[in-house]
Amino acid sequence: MIQYYCKQIFYWLVPVLMVTGCGINETHYFADAENDGIAIFSNTGNNLLTCYIDAKPWRTIARQQGILGPPRPTYEVYIQKRLSGTGKDTLSISWEGYFGTRDTLRRFITARLAVDSGFSATDLNALQGRRISLEGSNGYFLDSARNVYSVLMGTGHLYFHTLQLESTGPGAFSGSMSGLMDADFGTEKITNGRFDHSISPEQVQFQ
């Protein structure tokens, strides 16, 4: 009798999960005891960037992985390179997040760096342990609200504590990235930025 009910539950549950999906949260948030509202600086793959934007805590969306069908995985950060057709291409590291608990009001913080046209994903490894100042000529920061045509452009700094990508197949790379950042958009400032991500092949998109 119990076996019958277990089978029935299983047969109903599978199609339900196939339609609705079942996600695992792969973001681990450990509150910083010394900075209210943001997470600690870590390099253990917590899949998170937190910072203050004009002194208000901001964090990236949770990384969700579907285990049966939809929803599609969601990632909090993407590393992309776009061809410009000139001698320099654009490398973008783009984080999607929100203020406090207002998950509906999302925005993107993006760091854009000018790189040589032959720059590959594994060339990123040379940035590990380095600080980069984005001051306009070599790159800049963008702050853009989702679905709203307002983009702020600013300067800032990035420190990559870890940045290791390895090839896992043709055009596929995975690894880890952690570090610190700050930015100044003139009308607003990003301070105390810290990020820590494991990077999967879907997050590295190089043209």
Partner: peptide
């Protein structure tokens, strides 16, 4: 912790 808290961030800090 004792360090320059205004300018630096501890990596993987312990907490009470």
């Amino acid at each position: 912790y004792a360090y320059d808290k205004n300018n630096y961030t501890i990596l993987n800090p312990d907490q009470t």
